[in-house]
Amino acid sequence: MKRLFFGHTLAGLFIHTVVMILAAFFGSQILISAVNETAPEIQSPAEVKKEAILVLSPASALITKGGGKLAVQIVVYPGTVSINAVGVTMRYSANLKVVDLSRVNSFCTLYPEELVDSSARRIRIGCGAPNPGLTASAGVVETVVFQAISNGQARVEIDLDNSSVHANDGYGTNVLSRVEGAIFSITETKPATPLPKAVITSSPTHPDQNRWYSNRNPIFHWAQDEGVIGYATLLDQNPQGNPDPTVLEKGGLKQFSNLEEGVWYFHLRAKNNAGLGPISHFIIQIDATTPELNVQTNQTTVTEGEIVTIGFSSTDAETFLVKIRNESFETASSPLNLTNLPHGKSIIYIRAIDRAGNITERSVTVYVESENLIERFFDWLRLTFLNTK
């Protein structure tokens, strides 16, 4: 049987060249497609938000010299990730003495490190819990019991640089963002009991009363004063709410879950043997709905040098960000005119961000055709046979 051989004629040489080009082109495309479909993705560690907080509770108190003792809880607020280990370094004033470390109510089950160095006035605590670790919005690490030994102001500080909170992510990522210490007043004798003062309330989850937050699970904590029997609390949407004084909280922490959107008021008052103190109020604002985002473009297929106009709008977004291909997001306004897009496929991402930080993202795909006839021929081949740009 005869073999056809085109190399002996000019026509054969041309056909041979075209066949080789097409074979190389489609062969490489098929190989790349096959590799992309069969090769497993290499998983990189997911980005973990660094938002955990270590807090001392109470943050302030009045202690009597000598017999006065105060139990100070180390409380961790992990944020949106679960954690499984905490390391805390604390330092305290010379007019305080550590008399006990207590594991009561701690989320930890393992305690590889519990050290009190009285000469350096330094406390080091390291503890953890097996998987899944701490999944709640807050947890007690350990309780340190202090005794007052001389009058004046006493400070207990958490050393941020030598403390850590580790995510349960398989990498032990440190997610500690900030710490809050405590200041205590030590007196010689216990004064006559006055009515409690207004309680200072704060929220590690919703710290700014003028801001909106997407978190539906607020946490409140407050400084516990010596001599207080308990605290009456109430969370409602009435700015003048009055908590029931017959139902008292013993601790300095209150958590709520799955609140509806809107403005909420946390009301708090202390009670001691002399009676009830004034009501304090703390405002939180919740908006957990992602913003609406409308995106329009004048055309999605252009030739090199043509301008692409993208319009976007939202009824409740405060900020718009735009990213072209693999570049970084940058602040933008509508309409957005894009020039000099590279040849081929470009994806433009538009983000709308509302007052609470909720994000909605849309994208527009633009194809830029080359003015070069050969490149446009290959673009046509990709579109016709591989359905890609």
Rank of each mutant, 00 (worst) to 15 (best):
E47S: 14
P78A: 06
P78N: 11
L56I: 07
Q147M: 08
T135K: 04
Y92L: 08
S102K: 13
V81C: 02
V35Q: 14
A85F: 06
V145Y: 06
T38Y: 10
A148D: 02
N95C: 04
N151Y: 01
Y111H: 15
L96C: 07
Q153I: 09
V88T: 15
A61M: 11
V72A: 03
L56N: 06
N131D: 15
L160T: 02
P40K: 08
L101G: 00
K97M: 13
G87V: 00
G79R: 01
T64Q: 14
S44N: 12
S93E: 06
Q153F: 05
G67V: 09
G126N: 10
Y92S: 01
L56H: 11
Q73S: 13
S44V: 15
V76P: 03
Q73H: 10
K65V: 03
E51R: 06
A94H: 02
D117M: 05
S82G: 07
Q73P: 03
G79F: 02
I74T: 00
I83L: 04
E157L: 15
P130H: 13
N131F: 02
S93G: 10
N95A: 06
L96F: 11
A138Q: 13
I42A: 08
L134I: 02
A71Y: 03
N36H: 13
G67L: 08
L110D: 14
G87W: 00
E47K: 08
N95V: 07
P40M: 08
S137R: 12
V140D: 13
